[in-house]
Amino acid sequence: MPHQTPAMIALADSSAFATGAARPAARITRRRHAAVLPGFGTSLAITSLVVLALIVFPLAVLVLRAASLGPAGFLAAAWTPRARAAYGVSLSASVIAAVASSLLGLLVAWVLARVSFPGRRILDALVDVPLALPTAVAGLVYSALYVKKGWLGQWLVPLGIQGAYSYLGIVLVLVFVSLPFAIRVVQPVIESLDRDTEEAARILGASRTQTFLRVVLPAILPAVVTGFALSLARALGEYGSVVFISGNMPFKTEIAPVLIVARLEEFAYAEATTVAVLLLAMSITLLVIVNTLQQRLARNAQ
């Protein structure tokens, strides 16, 4: 991966997708000399302390608390019609947003990597804004922009496009929070593409579309899928921005985290926890599926 900044590698590497795809050379060296380097004990102690105390322990408590209901109680609490609808909204909106992010991200990444135009650097920098802007602020601002009185809503609402307090609103903020992931993973891969191959294809008579589909797409697809998975993971867990724009209508625009909060307010801790555990299981399952898919694609591309 030439000229890929570590930040980008980090993004591409996130969520355990690329953990299998490390550099073999470095690995062999490491294995040969591992015993020489100091600090194994100390770093193991610090790492396991933090991972156990901050990740394993809280999630174990969460799962045990939900398990205390027993299988029947768990299902009764976590699989009500309303809860099923909420998982559906959370999942479908996240998938749609991740698809939209991947497509829009591909466009932006392509332009940033391939076309030179005035303001390219600025556009490049702006892409990272959603990483740094608090999501609650994003939710408040988006809902204010898309209502009838808002900057964008005054044009869109008369056309019948409701960007606030609607399913579309949820998708919009989810695209906002996930867009940088989709762009930053694909951009370096496009930059590193061998343009000679593309030109060769063109010389051999392939159309622009054919070149893209046959030459470019297979090369960037693993990265696009990684971007999709990252966007999906980010979108599924998102709460702060969605709660301000969704309208929270049961069966329509109510997401699973809102349901967790609602159950808590009925003092139903175990029931709230079941929804949380199921949400957790869904995101992890999805990540594993996409991870497998991505690895297969990467193997095919080689």
Binding site: S14, T19, A34, L37, V61, A233, G237, A276, L279, L287
Partner: peptide, 28 residues
């Protein structure tokens, strides 16, 4: 810098907070 049993699992665990809803983290 080191290879040890459970290394891959550990790396996967680093990413868990990334996919856990913050609300769930607060609840825990």
């Amino acid at each position: 810098r080191f290879r040890f049993p459970g290394r891959s699992l550990l790396i996967s665990l680093f990413d868990v907070p990334f996919s856990v809803s913050p609300v769930v983290a607060g609840l825990a």
